[in-house]
């Protein structure tokens, strides 16, 4: 990678989806670009780069954060989990199943962030109301679904019932 003059790279060591990673990065690279461009984890999407849309939501040390609002170097020593890791571990399998069954996605661009956010909600509030689901996902823009199906899918995952559309 070519770098600008006067831009020394910094070594960052972190755990991503359970694997230890070491990379030399430009300080100005945000975590979302790092995950996508350096690690090839393109499930984390970049929708606005100013912390509004929620498409880049990942877990850092177990907490959901906007990965566009964190520098990659700030994740040095951290444990980062992305939608790919949560998929492979089976951690969000139930939500994925209800999202699919309920068509809680159309273009799918918001979906990784939406799943990470919904999984975080269900960890702290296992049996949410529709209002609680709406409030939790209000941090994540979806331009396709109208949200209704997403709320249905999260409710179905939480309450173990497959709701009919």
């Amino acid at each position: 990678m070519t770098v600008s003059p006067d831009e020394p790279e910094v070594v960052v060591r972190l755990t991503v989806n359970g694997a230890a990673e070491t990379r030399s990065v430009s300080p100005r690279q945000h975590l979302a670009d790092f995950l996508r461009d350096e690690l090839g984890l393109t499930g984390t999407h970049v929708g606005c780069e100013h912390g509004v849309c929620g498409a880049c939501t990942v877990l850092v040390d177990g907490d959901i954060v906007r990965s566009c609002l964190m520098l990659a170097v700030q994740a040095d020593g951290a444990v980062v989990d992305t939608v790919e890791g949560l998929s492979d571990s089976g951690e969000i399998a139930v939500l994925q199943q209800t999202f699919l069954a309920r068509n809680a996605l159309q273009c799918g661009f918001c979906t990784p962030g939406m799943l990470v956010t919904a999984a975080d909600l269900l960890r702290s509030v296992p049996e949410p109301t529709r209002e609680e689901v709406r409030e939790a996902i209000s941090a994540n823009y979806c331009r396709c679904t109208g949200y209704h199906a997403i709320v249905d899918a999260v409710m179905a995952a939480a309450h173990g019932t497959e709701q009919k559309p």
């Binding site: 929620g54 959901i64 954060v65 975080d120 941090a139």
Partner: peptide
């Protein structure tokens, strides 16, 4: 203030 993910940071 904003949303949960923002309040985490």
């Amino acid at each position: 203030v904003a949303h949960h993910a923002i309040r985490n940071r």
